[in-house]
């Protein structure tokens, strides 16, 4: 095939060059280096030794388990709460805009501030215990020391703190979806004999599926990468998560023998987990998109 010189230089493909250069330099190259680092030993030869060493560490196995629990637990809790909240706010009652504004406040806090805010509550004489005592749900003589929570309990606590923080972002995506939702689909359900629950299950959920999938994927990716909240509240090395381990290796034990290698290797593992879990989720929930208009 003959391509004239003129059309070659005039091809619109050239507009893509800056993006390609940017990704090659700042994205593909470091990614490849990290993968290579994780599969080589100190001498630079190909080896699985990094993975073998990592999986023999108790802390990594705990971190893996904690991360899985955190991802599943927070995804379920946040979806249920966010959808309920979105359905409620979508009804446009008298002060719905004010309520929407209030529910969005936690989104404005940076993770460090969230950590401090909750940490002040979790101490033996923190605001959570004061609050529970005021409600009569706790005996002031026998307060709970939330900060002493470890393992599963600590993960549950972090799920609650994380839910408080990110609920608005999940809710706002679902609310946007509901606001685009043609009310007549729902009304047709009611008119043709479905009760409120059947309409929600058979009509609203399936039609909202693309929006739900988007919100859940974004949440899952963020949940697998949890670390800052855990560190801000409990400190390093107390409730291990996979990405917490990366930060720990890079920040805390910087000069330990395998610190860098471990950090690279965990990075690869986290990336793999995110890719696998997202594609599994898509397969389970997505099946085929009907390619229909939503409105």
């Amino acid at each position: 095939m003959h391509v004239s010189r003129r059309s070659f230089f005039k091809s619109p493909v050239w507009f893509l060059v800056p993006v390609v250069v940017y990704y090659a330099a700042f994205w593909i190259r470091p990614t490849i280096s990290v993968i290579i680092e994780s599969f080589t030993d100190k001498s630079g030869a190909f080896a699985f030794s990094n993975y073998v060493r990592l999986f023999s560490q108790e802390a990594i196995r705990t971190a893996f388990l904690n991360t899985v629990l955190f991802t599943i637990g927070s995804a379920i809790l946040q979806f249920v709460l966010a959808f309920a909240l979105a359905l409620w706010l979508n009804r446009k009652f008298r002060f719905s805009n004010l309520v929407l504004f209030i529910t969005l406040i936690p989104m404005a806090f940076p993770p460090a501030a969230v950590g401090i805010l909750w940490k002040t509550g979790l101490y033996r004489f923190g605001w959570i215990n004061s609050f529970l005592c005021a409600l009569g749900l706790m005996n002031p003589a026998n307060p709970v020391d939330w900060m002493s929570f470890r393992n599963l309990n600590a993960v549950m606590l972090l799920i609650i703190v994380d839910t408080w923080t990110v609920l608005p972002s999940v809710m706002i995506i679902l609310l946007a979806g509901l606001q685009n939702f043609n009310k007549e689909f729902e009304e047709a359900g009611w008119v043709f004999g479905a009760n409120k629950f059947q309409t929600l299950k058979d009509i609203v959920f399936p039609i909202m599926k693309p929006t739900i999938i988007t919100a859940m994927i974004l949440r899952m990716i963020a949940a697998v990468q949890v670390w800052l909240i855990a560190v801000m509240i409990f400190g390093y090395n107390v409730v291990p998560f996979l990405v917490e381990r990366i930060a720990y290796n890079v920040d805390v034990i910087t000069f330990a023998k395998y610190a860098r290698k471990d950090a690279y290797t965990i990075s690869v593992i986290v990336a793999a987990i995110v890719l696998i879990s997202v594609s599994m989720y898509l397969r389970v929930s997505g099946d085929k998109q009907k390619g229909g208009e939503i409105t």
């Binding site: 043609n182 359900g189 399936p206 208009e293």
Partner: peptide, 14 residues
């Protein structure tokens, strides 16, 4: 015991 035809038809897309 009614049926209805809506302005947007409201034929369920899924």
């Amino acid at each position: 015991d009614i049926s209805m035809i809506f302005q947007s038809y409201a034929v369920w897309p899924h």
